[in-house]
Amino acid sequence: MNWSPGLPLLLIATALATAAAHAQTPVTLPPGPGLKLVETHCTSCHGLDFITKQPRGKGTAFWAGSVAKMIDTHGAEIPPDDAKAIVAYLGRTFG
């Protein structure tokens, strides 16, 4: 490959254009009971896009397992009643 003086600039410009193309718009979740708890507890460790990228249609049991994993494995401090409301919201919304 021939390296020309302009090649590094082209590579930088390409990288910046690629990054801009992949920039994410802010994620919002549909309203409903439990949304505020999701926004409060879940976003203390990750973005809402983490939730929207999960497989759809797996039901409430999937979300119960996911929330339990966040608590048991990752140390999320979510009170039991809040966890139940979060699971119910996620199951209804993304079930």
Rank of each mutant, 00 (worst) to 15 (best):
R92Y: 03
G47E: 06
V27S: 06
T40E: 07
L16Y: 12
Y89D: 01
F94H: 13
L90H: 07
T14H: 00
A23V: 08
P30M: 05
A64R: 15
K58M: 10
P5T: 08
L29T: 07
L16D: 03
P80H: 06
T60G: 01
T93H: 05
A64Q: 15
V38K: 06
V87H: 05
E77C: 00
G34L: 07
A85D: 08
A13M: 12
A83N: 03
I78C: 01
L37P: 03
D82P: 00
G34K: 06
K36L: 11
V38Q: 09
S4R: 13
R92V: 00
A76F: 15
L35I: 11
G57D: 08
L9T: 07
T40C: 00
P55H: 08
W3I: 14
T52E: 08
G65L: 02
I71G: 02
D49N: 14
H41M: 01
A21V: 00
A76K: 13
I78Q: 03
H46Q: 09
A20C: 03
P33L: 04
A15R: 10
K53C: 00
T52V: 15
L29M: 10
K69G: 04
P26Q: 11
K58G: 02
W3L: 14
L37K: 12
I86Q: 04
G6P: 03
G6N: 12
T25I: 10
P8T: 11
S66I: 04
A88G: 00
C45K: 04
G32R: 08
L29D: 07
T60R: 15
Y89K: 00
I78T: 10
G59N: 03
A17F: 09
A21S: 10
G65T: 05
F62I: 09
L37Y: 01
I86P: 04
K53W: 08
P26W: 07
K36A: 15
C42H: 12
A19I: 09
G32C: 07
G6W: 12
D49R: 14
S66V: 09
L11K: 09
E77N: 13
P33W: 01
P26G: 02
L10T: 13
G47S: 14
F62W: 12
P26S: 10
T73W: 09
F62H: 13
T52L: 04
L9Q: 09
C42V: 07
P5D: 12
A15K: 04
A76L: 14
A19C: 00
A88C: 00
A76W: 13
G95Y: 11
Q54I: 05
H22F: 13
E77G: 00
H74L: 12
T14L: 14
F62M: 01
V38S: 06
S4L: 10
F94C: 01
P31L: 09
R56G: 05
P79F: 01
A61W: 00
F62S: 02
I12M: 14
Q24E: 15
H41Y: 15
Q24M: 08
K36G: 00
L7T: 14
G75C: 05
L11H: 08
W3Y: 12
P8K: 09
M70E: 05
H46S: 03
A19F: 09
P79Y: 04
G75Q: 07
D72H: 12
G91Y: 08
T43L: 00
T14D: 01
L37I: 04
A85V: 07
F62A: 04
I51S: 01
A61V: 13
